[in-house]
Design a protein around this nucleic acid. Structure first.
Lengths: 202, 202
DNA sequence: CCACTCAGTAGAACAGATTCTATTAAGACG
DNA sequence: CGTCTTAATAGAATCTGTTCTACTGAGTGG
């Protein structure tokens, strides 16, 4: 499908380097959060020069997004391993969102990063789209395949818009938790209240 | 209602100073946006010391929120002057949101500030609550009074949650416009799609 | 195998938010 | 009026993201 560029020593090293950087960054973020993940520190610990770090990730936000993207992979795997089993679309969607929420809240610092990167990023963040897609598959009952595009959803269809809306709401609720304004139970209730009418027609 | 502290020269000056700061900041933000609104510059032009600025607004975000809050006042006045006239709750809500959107987009820099402050602020930002309240009154058909609390809405009622959800969605759509991913028409459509089921029971 | 390119390096430099220090003076209050 | 508290001031200092410079060396391609 994609054109395979001939691969040399060079690119191999680059891939390794990139991976090392992201892992280092993730480790730092896991502790002190985004602010502990300082560009200088990441560079040092990853054993690359500051300039190199900036060649790979032109801004801190890009790095954050990279870290968060890996988390998202994990969630996707988890979902496909143990799919939600509720009857209604709304039920399944809320189930998945709450699982994600609980997972994230185990690492609040990272959650914070996720949310902020979703929101702030000038960065081409397909993150939002990926979440919506995931949710869409869950809601419609399509099994969550890894990368295989089982049925590229029509992104302008009302259904897709509705799911996207639910995703927005979720992000906000996450934010509220992070700010200490809500607990997980409240969020679950609120998601249920919103998801029910939104996904009633599924 | 509130305890009136005796007012001296001191506090009067402080109020003036605060107002001067906010106005200066707003003026700067109106041009170059949040980044043009540098703390040093604000301090200089407002004729206060940097330290003083920081006494009044402990972080730049606090200052941004103050500026944005004034904008919100304007919107509220505009709404009460010319209330939405649609038949359905969803119609009225979308009407108001789109008016706000158009207003904000006239000053994209400020819009950006609004959104970011809503999102980022550790700051005690009743901004979100205020928007939701406004929307709630509009949706239920309660005339939008200025500051008078005509009927303090029950913030845990499902209705209130639903309206809050719509507010979240709106913020996100704003964000998408700012990122250049959508135009106003698309946003309107999407808001309609989401608002209709959400506010169906009003 | 050699020349050359360009990724990588070290580290200085820059920018803007935030903090700190020492000093001054306004105004509350007896 | 004379303290005395505390806000305000000027400006240096710090912190962290980002940019820039000059230099080096791994690897590619002929």
């Amino acid at each position: 499908m994609a054109v395979q560029a001939p691969i040399g020593m060079r690119m191999r090293n680059q891939n390794q380097r990139r991976k090392r950087i992201v892992q280092t960054a993730a480790a730092l973020a896991l502790r002190g959060g985004v602010e502990a993940m300082q560009m200088r520190t990441v560079a040092e610990r990853a054993g690359v020069a500051l300039g190199t770090l900036y060649r790979y990730f032109p801004s801190k936000m890009d790095l954050v997004v990279a870290v968060v993207t890996e988390e998202l992979d994990l969630l996707e795997t988890s979902i496909s391993r143990r799919p939600p089993n509720a009857e209604t679309a709304a039920g399944r969607a809320v189930d998945v969102l709450m699982r994600a929420t609980r997972g994230l809240m185990r690492e609040p610092e990272l959650a914070d990063a996720l949310v902020r990167s979703l929101i702030m990023a000038e960065v081409k963040t397909e993150l939002g789209a990926r979440i919506t897609d995931l949710l869409y598959r869950v809601a419609t009952g399509t099994p969550v395949a890894g990368n295989e595009e089982s049925a590229p959803p029509d992104r302008d269809a009302d259904d897709y818009v509705l799911v996207g809306s639910l995703a927005s709401i979720w992000i906000f609720e996450l934010l509220e938790i992070l700010k200490g304004h809500r607990d997980m139970e409240q969020v679950q209730q609120r998601l249920e209240v919103a998801a029910e009418p939104l996904l009633a027609g599924f």
